[in-house]
Write a protein that binds this DNA or RNA. Structure first.
Length: 424
RNA sequence: GUGGAUGUAGCUCAACCGGUAGAGCGCUUGAUUGUGGUUCAAGUGGUUGGGGGUUCAAGUCCCCUCAUCCACCCCA
């Protein structure tokens, strides 16, 4: 009955083709290089974790845990979850491998797919990709600044220089509690002016009201108490040092009082970079400090800070049309019985590090093969037919000049390489 | 989870007021012997996303469903 239906990617997930796949790989390469420059090591964690890790790590009240997790039971009835974010698994690995016994702080980066069950839209997928890094074991503000410096160095390698860092401090849990109290007192009398979502958040998570998009609510918040006025002395000093160091490093940033993050574990420093070129889902990266997370997961009170870059969105900023990259050389047999010569020659070229494609499929007229090579965008073709085989040669032809030359099979690849040089 | 838009060939899109589905691009082949680009010709292409209904007749109207896109929400 459903026999006619063709298979396709499941909702919110996609294939990465051609240019897009190359851009993903390029971004990963640049990230690895940039992060290693700072002494970060790669950490690869499983795609699946114990559901409870996220419930406790990310927070029961968060949207992610509440509605967006891909959770299932395995055959033994264990509740497992496709990882929706990267920090909790890293924290788990830190504890599991007793990294507290390593030289501190532990600095790691990671990249890969993450999963959230949400309604897809521009820049939002159910399988998306993040590149992240974490510094675990240093409470100090200097690490905060260094992490931002690394982030901006990475982004500048991708030729983004017009991006601005939004920075804020959400303080320690006590500061936040104090502030939420004040915010409630301010908003409660004006409750009617808030939308349904914000009214609900008044109970669950008043901080989240700060980053509302509703114009009337934003207006209302202009007269609200400021988060920074509720910060305790330690948090305030920490934030001041972060700002000062960023200035010394020449990093432009904007303190954004309304910047709060969605995950429950953040403390003190939080930051975000977004792009106006991206539509509604415009955050390309977010991060912050999480001094309570490791403790929450049953470990010692070890502080941490990290970020996650939305790789899909980053690549979107780099995107143009899709193109096929074609090697410079196409080896064409003249007549199907010369296919073994073509195969042989192509391998010799590759031995010499010359990218080459051999036309090994069922035989076609030479004319058609040439047309195909030309349309395909090859710079050079190599021809082998009966005559060449008999003479112990192969023909190298430039599709630019149209000139061609019979080259002895002996030392063929080196000779081809030498003739290609002037074109590069 | 809520709302809006859109589904026709591999891709981009046509098809009037309901009347038996088209173009361009692509791909394949050919235009005399083993030589490309331009050109010309031919070929390949579709259960009009799927299902139901109205009608003599549905790509077109109605209902359901699925998918995609966009926004809310949330975040990367």
């Amino acid at each position: 009955m459903a026999a006619k239906r063709r298979f396709q990617t499941v909702k919110g997930m996609r294939d990465l083709l051609l240019d897009e796949a190359r851009r993903f790989a390029m971004v990963e390469q640049i990230a690895r290089d940039a992060f290693r420059l700072y002494g970060f090591e790669e950490l690869r964690t499983p795609l699946v974790e114990d559901t409870d890790l996220f419930v406790r790590g990310v927070g029961e009240g968060s949207e992610i845990v509440g509605k967006q997790m891909y959770t299932f039971d395995d055959k033994k009835g264990r509740s497992l979850t496709l990882r929706p974010e990267g920090t909790a698994p890293v924290a788990r690995a830190y504890l599991q491998h007793d990294m507290a016994s390593w030289p501190q702080p532990v600095k790691v980066f990671y990249m890969g797919p993450y999963f959230r069950y949400e309604r897809p839209q521009a820049g939002r997928y159910r399988q998306f990709h993040q590149i992240g890094a974490e510094v675990i074991g240093d409470p100090g503000p200097y690490s905060d600044a260094e992490l931002l410096a690394m982030l901006l160095r990475f982004l500048s390698k991708l030729l983004f220089d017009d991006l601005e860092v939004g920075l804020n401090s959400v303080g320690d849990p006590e500061c936040r509690q104090r502030y939420c109290q004040r915010l409630r007192e301010y908003l409660e009398p004006r409750r009617g002016e808030l939308g349904a979502d914000s009214q609900r958040r008044l109970e669950t998570n008043p901080l989240r009201i700060l980053d509302t998009k509703v114009p009337e609510e934003r207006k209302l918040l202009e007269g609200a108490p400021r988060l920074r006025d509720s910060l305790g002395r330690a948090a305030r000093e920490h934030f001041a040092v972060v700002c000062e160091q960023l200035e010394r490093l020449g990093i432009a940033y904007r303190v954004d009082d309304r910047l709060v993050r969605g995950l429950d574990y953040y403390t003190r420093t939080v930051f975000e970079i977004s792009s106006a070129r991206l539509g509604a889902q415009n955050a390309i990266l977010g991060g912050g400090r999480y001094d309570g997370l490791i403790g929450e997961l049953g470990g010692p009170a070890v502080p941490g800070i990290g970020f996650a870059i939305g790789q899909d969105r980053l690549v979107e900023l780099l995107s143009g049309g899709l193109t096929l990259v074609v090697p410079p050389v196409c080896v064409i047999p003249v007549g199907s019985h010369c296919r073994e010569d073509a195969l042989q020659l192509a391998e010799e070229l590759r031995d010499a590090e010359v990218m080459a494609v051999a036309e090994l499929a069922s035989p076609r007229a030479l004319k058609a093969a040439l047309r195909k090579a030309d349309r395909g965008g090859y710079d050079w073709i190599v021809l082998v037919g009966e005559d060449e085989r008999a003479a112990g040669t192969a023909v190298l032809k430039s599709l630019y000049s149209g000139l061609q030359e019979a080259i002895p099979r002996e030392g063929f690849a080196a000779a081809v390489k030498a003739r290609m040089e002037p074109h590069e």
